[in-house]
Amino acid sequence: MSARVSNLATWAVVLALLFAVPSVVGFDGALINIAVVIAINAILAFSLGILFGYAGQMSLAHAAFYGIGAYTAANIALKWGVSFWWCLPIAALAAMLVAAILSIVVTRMEGIVFSLGTYAVGEMIRLVFVNWWQVTGGPQGLSFQRRPESIFGLDFTTRGSFYYVVAAILVLSYLGIRKLMKSKLGWWFVALRENPVLAQSLGINVHLAKAIVFILSAGLAGVVGVLYLYNFRHISPEAFSVWESILLILIVMIGGVGTMAGPIIGAAVFLVLPEVLRLPPTVQPVLIGVVLILVVVLLPRGVVGTFEDWWKARRIKGQAVPKEAA
């Protein structure tokens, strides 16, 4: 079987599985909700994955951009009745605009200093969410009762149909990011992570590359903000704090930094595990903290990365043996 055919077969299986989820877990109820939340977090982890995983920039402001998307959508939908489908691109543009302004400052920073700087950015945006109550509803946040409008004669008001919207965006962002990472720009991002000095000496505009990846990842996070808003129907500043950014980093690290499947696996592990274990709310953060530490110390390449290493090592071993025998 050629690589192309096996690739297509894999895709067919994955798409069929994604499509079958509501039929298996039911079109309504707790299980489909979990599936939606996993998919939302997986897209969010994708968006952070471009910045943190591929370009190596650990941002602690990521949840703030997702918040900007959510607050933008809530305001334009409530005040002007903008439809769900228009909210998606507008929220993305809003998040990208803020990211573009901030990129003037943050692209000057490197490594740990970048993390510290984005920490300050995330905190400041959260303070704006808390204090600009005319727009954000202050610390209590905003309630939101609208549902996605029907489009092409399809109805999107049930949980199961909303799942398909989220799943479609998940697949599209996966394909988009994969295409991006195979493009020249994608190589710039990886060069940025591996060695910024060397990248610059090869003629790559490091500042520009960093700004582009920062803005792109903020844009996708803005889209997820809209999904979050329509799913939870309530938004408040605490959902978009630096803590949320940290949990996202954990999701990306559990899955595997710089891998395509990592964010999905990470989101699934991170969200399903607490549901299965049902720990008291004071114990749960301890578990998260311990898992985070163990992942960093024992599996620095994450679940997917470790599996990839093991798979490659196995294949190399398999090839090397006959050569030595010959």
Partner: peptide
Amino acid sequence: RYTRGTPMNGLVISLGLIMIFQSL
């Protein structure tokens, strides 16, 4: 001490420690 060569991992670990200490 497991993160000497990679300060970024040390940072991530310290984030995990925050959750543990706050819950405690």
